[in-house]
Simulated assay, not measured.
Amino acid sequence: MQKLTNKEEEIMQILWKLEKAFVKDVLAEIKKDKPHYNTLSTIIRNLEEKGYVSYNAYGKTHQYYPIISKEVYKEKYMNTAIENYFNNSYKNVVSFFAKEEKISVDELKEIIAIIEKNN
Rank of each mutant, 00 (worst) to 15 (best):
K3M: 11
K3W: 04
N6M: 10
N6L: 15
N6R: 13
N6G: 03
E9Q: 15
E10V: 08
I11T: 15
M12D: 04
Q13K: 11
Q13Y: 10
W16G: 00
K17Y: 14
E19R: 07
K20Q: 07
F22V: 05
V23S: 01
D25Y: 08
V26A: 00
V26N: 02
V26R: 01
V26L: 03
L27C: 03
K31W: 09
K32D: 08
K32M: 07
N38E: 10
T39R: 12
S41C: 09
I43E: 14
R45F: 07
L47P: 01
E48P: 00
K50E: 02
K50F: 08
G51R: 01
Y52P: 03
Y52V: 05
V53T: 10
S54I: 00
N56C: 01
Y58H: 09
Y58Q: 07
K60A: 05
K60G: 06
K60L: 06
H62Q: 06
Q63P: 00
Y64I: 01
Y64Q: 00
Y64G: 02
Y64N: 01
Y65P: 00
P66T: 04
I67M: 01
I68G: 02
S69G: 02
S69K: 05
K70R: 11
K70A: 07
E71I: 07
V72A: 12
Y73H: 09
Y73W: 08
Y73T: 01
K74A: 11
K74R: 15
K76E: 13
N79Y: 09
A81E: 14
A81G: 04
I82D: 08
I82L: 07
E83T: 12
N84M: 14
N84Y: 09
N84W: 05
Y85C: 09
F86S: 03
N87H: 13
N88L: 03
K91E: 13
N92I: 04
N92S: 12
V94S: 07
V94K: 12
V94I: 14
S95R: 13
F96K: 12
F96G: 06
F96P: 03
K102S: 06
K102F: 04
I103W: 07
I103D: 03
V105I: 10
I111C: 09
I112D: 11
I112Y: 14
I112P: 06
I112E: 13
A113L: 11
A113R: 15
I114C: 04
I115N: 04
I115Y: 15
I115A: 15
I115S: 11
I115C: 12
E116I: 04
E116N: 15
K117E: 14
N118R: 15
N118M: 11
N118F: 09
N118G: 07
N119H: 11
N119E: 12
